[in-house]
């Protein structure tokens, strides 16, 4: 098995379960990029799963592969018990209404030539939900909820709104079909801190109100900590650690997570000098290192790390790590 194990998977009301997901891209004539290399995780109903990791480690690709926008090379994506990888095109289209995605760039993800309210209403028109009057009523009430004036939205195009407003509009559009799961790929990275705070509070409110399940991909670890119940850390196409967000930041166990947490820029010039920084060259996803993919850059690596791939194991309290030498002593080995 190519994956890093499944000890961290749970029973219970699982909305999404990704099993041994592999996504490869051709690069040049003879090489392939191993973007996602056997990743497994699950998300419970009403939970927010944060995904963090180095740029290029496969976060967006994982999100797109869940939606089947990028076809997985292998593995399964089971959403409310149905494997999306085996669905026919029309069944997949139907299933996709229950999973929505919000992207980083709020302005370019809306059609620049259309009135904003029409863009939000589109999914309802396509799926012919209710009468025209009902659709408009629903769209208006959702726009109201995300803090956008429906009248103004009916008359204006995206460029007439700010970045934060466009992100609220994208969120409204993601909500109209009453989805179960929303995958947010860096939804606040392009926003300034004050608007970011508004959007994060808004997501939190909407989650309660609509009983949403979220996957939240981002670079800003403080943001991820704020919104997530559980956080998964990825490194070069693999999962290296999963834990509740308070636990992950409180006692990072994987050497990579530790570097990540230590690199967080602190808004205080007296403390801003970075602690541990990452060393070594970033590895190639075309020719990934043997054994643990982090071993060439890991200060704790030894022989076994370069030979054998570590699998996920429990270190207690729902905290899992894929490392031969985690930074805390394992409590129980699952």
């Amino acid at each position: 098995m190519a994956g890093t194990g499944t000890a961290h998977l749970r029973d219970g009301d699982v909305v999404l379960r990704v099993d041994d997901l592999v996504v490869e891209f051709p690069m040049g004539r003879h090489a392939t990029v191993s973007a996602v290399a056997g990743v497994s995780f699950d998300v419970l109903r009403g939970e927010t799963l944060g995904i963090v990791g180095e740029s290029g480690c496969g976060k967006s690709t994982t999100g797109r592969a869940i939606m089947q926008i990028t076809a997985p090379t292998s593995g399964t994506v089971s959403f409310e018990g149905t494997d999306l990888t085996s669905l026919s095109y029309s069944d997949l289209r139907e299933a996709r209404t229950k999973i929505q995605m919000i992207f980083q760039d709020p302005i370019s993800s809306l059609n620049p030539r259309r009135k904003v309210r029409d863009s939000v209403k589109d999914p309802l028109d396509i799926w012919q939900r209710g009468s025209e009057a009902q659709r408009i009523e629903l769209v208006n009430s959702i726009l109201e909820q995300v803090g956008i004036d429906p009248e103004r939205a009916a008359e204006s195009r995206p460029h007439q709104f700010s970045g934060g407003q466009c992100q609220r509009i994208s969120i409204a559009r993601a909500l109209v079909l009453d989805p179960t799961l929303i995958i947010c790929d860096e939804p606040v990275s392009a926003l300034d801190v004050s608007v970011q705070a508004q959007v994060l509070n808004l997501l939190e409110d909407l989650k309660q109100q609509y009983g949403l399940t979220l996957i939240f991909i981002a670079h800003d670890l403080a943001v991820v900590k704020n919104i997530s119940d559980r956080v998964a850390v990825m490194y070069l196409g693999k999962l290296c650690e999963v834990a509740s967000s308070d636990d992950l930041y409180g006692r990072p166990a994987h050497p990579y997570t530790n570097v990540l947490v230590e690199s967080i820029p602190i808004p205080d010039p007296e403390l801003a000098v970075a602690g541990t920084t990452i060393t070594g060259e970033p590895p190639s996803p075309v020719n990934p290192p043997s054994g643990c993919r982090f071993h060439p850059r890991c200060p704790y690596a030894d022989d076994i790390c370069s030979r054998t791939e570590p699998t996920m194991r429990s270190i207690g309290d729902g905290h899992f790590v894929a490392c031969h030498h985690p930074l805390v002593t394992p409590v129980s080995i699952a």
Partner: peptide, 29 residues
């Protein structure tokens, strides 16, 4: 950072999620 004077600068600082706060802490806007 030591002697912020503008309420605006202060408000920007306060809207940043802080790592030391527990998750789901309501943010100031």
């Amino acid at each position: 950072f030591a002697n912020m004077k503008m309420p605006y600068t202060k408000s920007l600082m306060r809207s940043i999620p802080k790592l030391e706060d527990p998750s789901h802490t309501r943010l100031l806007t």
